[in-house]
C-alpha cells in the first residue's frame, strides 16, 4: 500500500510538468501579442517604442524553451506575475477567491453523494416498481438539463415564486443551496444510476446467495455485503464528479453572483488578463489532479485486493 502511494506521488511530478508545458504552449500559441494586450490593459498607447519596451520587460525576445523554463521556475516559486488589470500578484488574488469556490464545490459534492446514495439504493431494491421508475425518470431529466438553465429555473421557483431562498450572493446555508443544487444535479443523477447498477449486480451475486445460505438475514446481506461492494467502486467516480463540479462552479458563480474563483477567471478572460488565466488553469488542474490522486488512494485502501497486492499466500 505504501509502495502504491509513493509510486503515485512520484508520478505526480511528470504529470504536473506535462500539464505546465501544455498550458505554456497554449498560452504562447494563442496569445497573439502579449505585449499588445499588456499595453492595452495598462492604458499605454501601443507605439513601437512602448511595444519594444514591453516585449523586453515581459521577456518575449528570448527563445521559447528559455521562456518556458523561466516561466516554470517562477511558477515553482509561486510567482505567477501580476494581473494586467489590477496589478496585484495573481496568486494572491486567486487564493483570495478560491476558498469561496471550494466551500461551494465541497457542499455540492456532499449533496451529490448524500442524495445519490439513498436514491440509488431504493431504486435498486424496488427495481421496476414505482420508486425505481420515478428515480430513473427524474435521473433522465436531470442529466439532460444544462446547469445554467437549471440555475435560473431554481431561482424562478424558489426565489421568485416561493420566496424561500435568496437568489444572489454569498452567505450561509440558505445562500449555498441553490448554487450547489445547480452544480450537483447532473452528477447526482449519474451517481444514483451507478449505485443502482452496482447494487443490482451485487444483489444477484454468488456471495449474496452464499450469505443467504449461511443464514444471514436479507437486511444483513444487503446492508453489509451488497452495499459495501456496491459503494467501493463509486469512490472512483468521485474524481469524475469533481471535474464536472469545477466547471459547474464557474456557471453557478456567474448565475448567483457567488464571489468565487470561477467568476474571477471569467472576467479575466474578458479582459485578456493572461497571468490570471494561466494561474487559474494551473491551480484548478493541480487541485483536480490531487483530488483524483486522493480518490485513487482511498479506493486502493478500501479494496483489499489492491491494498494487499503482493501478499497472496
Amino acid at each position: 500500500m505504501l509502495y502504491y502511494i509513493l509510486k503515485r506521488l512520484a508520478l505526480l511530478v511528470p504529470i504536473l510538468l506535462a500539464v505546465s508545458l501544455v498550458v505554456f504552449l497554449i498560452l504562447r500559441l494563442g496569445q497573439g501579442d502579449p505585449a499588445m494586450s499588456y499595453l492595452r490593459l495598462s492604458g499605454i498607447p501601443p507605439t513601437d517604442e512602448a511595444l519594444a519596451v514591453a516585449r523586453t520587460e515581459l521577456g518575449l525576445n528570448r527563445p521559447l524553451p528559455v521562456q518556458y523554463l523561466d516561466w516554470l521556475g517562477k511558477a515553482a516559486r509561486l510567482d505567477f506575475g501580476r494581473s494586467y488589470v489590477t496589478k496585484n500578484p495573481v496568486l494572491e488574488e486567486i487564493l483570495y477567491y478560491l476558498p469561496n469556490t471550494l466551500v461551494l464545490a465541497g457542499f455540492s459534492l456532499f449533496l451529490t453523494l448524500a442524495a445519490s446514495l439513498p436514491l440509488g439504493v431504493i431504486s435498486a431494491m424496488e427495481k421496476d416498481r414505482l420508486p425505481d421508475q420515478l428515480v430513473r425518470g427524474l435521473s433522465f431529466f436531470g442529466v439532460s438539463i444544462p446547469n445554467f438553465f437549471l440555475g435560473f429555473l431554481l431561482v424562478w421557483v424558489f426565489s421568485i415564486k416561493l420566496r424561500w431562498l435568496p437568489s444572489l450572493g454569498m452567505g450561509g446555508l440558505s445562500h449555498m443551496i441553490l448554487p450547489a443544487a445547480t452544480m450537483s444535479l447532473m452528477s447526482l443523477c449519474i451517481n444514483a444510476r451507478l449505485i443502482r447498477a452496482n447494487m443490482l449486480e451485487n444483489l444477484h451475486s454468488r456471495y449474496a446467495l452464499y450469505a443467504r445460505a449461511r443464514g444471514l438475514s436479507e437486511a444483513s446481506v444487503v446492508g453489509r455485503h451488497v452495499l459495501a461492494n456496491s459503494l467501493i467502486p463509486v469512490v472512483t467516480a468521485v474524481g469524475m464528479h469533481v471535474g464536472e463540479l469545477f466547471g459547474g462552479a464557474v456557471v453557478a458563480e456567474s448565475i448567483f453572483a457567488w464571489p468565487g474563483v470561477g467568476r474571477y477567471a471569467v472576467s479575466a478572460i474578458y479582459n485578456r488578463d493572461y497571468p490570471v488565466m494561466q494561474c487559474f488553469i494551473l491551480i484548478m488542474t493541480l487541485l483536480f489532479v490531487v483530488m483524483n490522486l486522493g480518490v485513487d488512494i482511498l479506493y486502493a485502501w478500501l479494496d483489499p485486493r489492491i491494498r494487499l497486492q503482493g501478499e497472496t499466500s
Binding site: I15, A18, V19, V22, V23, I26, L27, L29, G30, Q31, V242, G243, E244, F246, G247, G248, V250, A265, V266, A268, I269, R272, Y274, M277, Q278, F280, I281, M284, T285, F288, V289
Partner: peptide, 15 residues
Amino acid sequence: TFPTFILAMFMVGVL
C-alpha cells in the same frame, strides 16, 4: 488530466 470545462475556458480565453 485537465478538468474539461476549465480547459475549454482557458483555450477560448487564450485563442
